[in-house]
Design a protein around this nucleic acid. Structure first.
Lengths: 119, 119
DNA sequence: ATCAAAGTTTGACAGTGATCGTACTTCCTG
DNA sequence: CAGGAAGTACGATCACTGTCAAACTTTGAT
């Protein structure tokens, strides 16, 4: 392979193997509402999203922190496209190790978002 | 009803309606490993357990705190029998509002307990 | 060559929550 | 009724984590 693919250029630290992630780590990641929002949006969008396209009520540096935590918890995979860092939900991989968990939480996310909108 | 049942005597504050519990509150309750252990034990035991019969690596006062959090999060129901405070997992109720969540987490609990035992 | 856009890194700060010991309450038993 | 068992309540620590601003890096456009 003569040239590294564009997606690989932006030295993003290696992603963890989901099988090496503990329930503890996953819950610590998902207990934060901002991070749960990110996961919910990625799940609903059904496509990869750049950090910037997900509206968050925090500063950019804080957002970076949250994406970092999600990546370390095996929930998202990140790669660069130009200057944008893309985020992909690691659905299948995650589901194999924590069956039903993502579904259960995203259900709650959707339900409570609806409730907010109706209010 | 001439006499209050024994179970009702020990003024335990009223239990919340599970439908009024947010995902946020549930996750804050379950992110703590001690509390997850309690839930796991209640789930495995398939019967109500007094606070004292669940071994915990913390002091009594801290244990009280954890049971309190679980009760407020709609995960357990408490009642007195003599001087013992019994704890019942609110399975069905909880499952109706957060379908799949308990199952998903207890699965992880069991799996990781097994891993520890094998080591 | 610049410039702007998109994120990252670093350091500091503040709020929260888990923890403990001590003192207190209730209930059962001898 | 005295003693013990089972928890609770209260305050005080202490560590962690979410937050931000400021300075920096990399990439794409003009």
């Amino acid at each position: 392979m003569a040239a590294a693919r564009q997606s690989e250029r932006g030295r993003i630290p290696p992603h963890p193997d989901v099988r090496a992630i503990s329930t503890q780590q996953v819950l610590e990641a998902l207990v934060d509402p901002v991070r749960r929002h990110i996961v919910g949006e990625l799940h609903a969008a059904r496509e990869d999203l750049s950090c910037g396209t997900i509206e968050l009520p925090v500063s950019k540096s804080t957002a970076t922190h949250h994406f970092h935590v999600l990546r370390e918890a095996g929930l998202i995979r990140q790669y660069y496209v130009g200057t944008s860092r893309m985020n992909a939900l690691r659905r299948e991989e995650f589901d194999e190790v924590f069956p039903g968990l993502l579904r259960a939480l995203v259900t709650g996310h959707a339900r409570e978002s609806d409730a907010r909108r109706e209010a």
